[in-house]
Write a protein that binds this DNA or RNA. Structure first.
Length: 419
DNA sequence: TCTGGGGTCCTAGGACCC
DNA sequence: TCTGGGGTCCTAGGACCC
């Protein structure tokens, strides 16, 4: 049996833990640049505020309804997530950290008659120890555990815990849930399935497997199998090493010249390199992208990206910045209002076993020592204490005007935030 | 004026190999 | 008139997740 433990309205709940005044007040949390609403307390949801809504369009409404508004405070959320994981590890082994606010636990080693008690223990301890409200769904597969969690969270009578014990309960639950709510069914497939008469999760479970395989690939077929009770989806923990690393930002004010764009690109490269060294990997490929606002008229729209294969896999910020700037220069076109840019690393491999080139002109051991020192200083003294000249001095790219304090961490933990 | 960020997996099709 | 068979690797694009 699998359990899905999911913190209710995670970001909003985190803000509440340290600010009890908010307990009975609607709360929303904004995306980077205070752009969109990305988390809502249940009271905020009840007011009809939609996920992903633009903040500037709702600012007045939020004020009128006494909604507390926060910029996203990732160091705080990441730390609360860590605490949740620690508590869960004490209750049960074999957990997989699926996202910042969701954990799967394999409860196969527990006796079936104990599952309900364990689920309640998880819920009670997380609330008591770290003040976070969670929902727990337990079922024979992860996909069904998601369904159980869906009901646990939404219907008061379950008090946030639901264990699927028999096939009849599962059948009823699947009948009453829209196919689009099933884990793995997104907007496109929902539309496709409904167009073919598959409306509920039960319809999907009982759909023709050849048909599903043909139109939804093996991924869709796995979902069907999981709904039938055959466990066949495995998930990697987000604590595993990443296969790609990206850092990108939307600019509050558009950038219109390459000098400023170079500064931003360099800073993004610094960020991805830090993450790269943190997981002890090296990259084979670096990519840069730039784009104008996606809300612009077609006429004023431009987006482009360039990837460069590195001669030797690298985790060296000095070197990576050079390639990033080179890539930027090949795609930059004068005359556009750039609203977003980013740097990506691909082809990551273990930096301990790197294959060097005999034509390599870089003194890698020397750089390695320098970077180790730089990382140490910046971890100890704060991000960008020592920076690269090309970054310039205004490295504050995004704006967060409504940030709560980092109640539980110092800035030196920023570097390993994964969301 | 203003609209987030970071990931994964799968497939089809092309290039190339013998 | 007729034109093999089997494989790998890479990439772009599309779907999904939080």
């Amino acid at each position: 049996m699998h359990a899905l433990i999911d913190i209710n309205n995670f970001y909003a709940s985190c803000e509440r833990v340290f600010n009890p005044v908010l307990r009975n007040q609607p709360v929303v949390v904004l995306s980077n640049n205070d752009g969109c609403i990305i988390a809502r307390s249940s009271e905020a949801k009840a007011l009809g505020i939609k996920m992903g809504a633009a903040y500037f369009e709702h600012e007045k409404f939020l004020k009128e309804n006494n909604v507390a508004v926060y910029s996203s405070n990732y160091p705080l959320y990441a730390d609360m997530s860590d605490r949740m994981v620690k508590i869960l590890n004490e209750i049960t082994d074999d957990i997989t950290i699926y996202s910042i606010d969701e954990v799967f636990a394999d409860l196969s080693s527990h006796h079936p008659s104990d599952l309900e008690d364990i689920a309640h223990e998880i819920k009670d301890k997380l609330l008591k120890y770290i003040g976070l409200p969670v929902s727990v769904g337990v079922a024979p597969t992860k996909t069904l555990a998601k369904v159980a969690n869906y009901y646990a969270k939404r219907y008061k009578k379950f008090s946030n815990v639901l264990v699927f014990k028999d096939d009849e309960t599962i059948k009823e639950a699947l009948l009453l849930i829209d196919v689009g709510e099933v884990w793995g069914i997104g907007r496109q497939f929902k539309k496709f399935l409904k167009g073919n008469g598959i409306k509920s999760a039960l319809d999907l479970r009982d759909a023709n497997e050849t048909f599903i395989r043909k139109h939804m690939t093996v991924t869709g077929l796995r979902t069907v199998k999981e709904l039938k009770g055959y466990s066949c989806i495995s998930v990697d923990s987000i604590r595993e090493d990443r296969k790609n690393i990206t850092h990108s930002r939307t600019f509050k004010t558009a950038i219109t010249n390459i000098t400023e764009l170079k500064k931003a690109t360099a800073t993004f490269t610094v960020r991805v390199s830090e993450k790269l060294r943190f997981q002890k990997s090296a990259a084979n490929i670096i990519g840069v992208f730039i784009e104008t606002s996606r809300f612009n008229n077609k006429k004023y729209k431009y987006k482009n990206s360039k990837v460069i294969n590195l001669p030797v896999p690298s985790d060296n910020t000095f070197e990576l910045i050079k390639y990033a700037v080179k890539a930027l220069e090949t795609i930059y076109v004068n005359g556009f209002q750039y609203k977003k840019a980013g740097v990506m690393l691909f082809g990551l491999q273990d930096s301990a076993n790197m294959q060097y080139s005999i034509f390599d002109t870089y003194d890698r051991p020397k750089y390695k020592n320098a970077l180790t020192v730089l990382d140490k200083i910046n971890i100890k003294m704060g991000r960008d204490t020592v920076r690269y000249a090309i970054q310039g001095h205004n490295t504050k790219i995004s704006i967060q005007e409504r940030l709560s304090p980092r109640y539980t961490t110092s800035w030196n933990q920023i570097i390993d935030v994964k969301t």
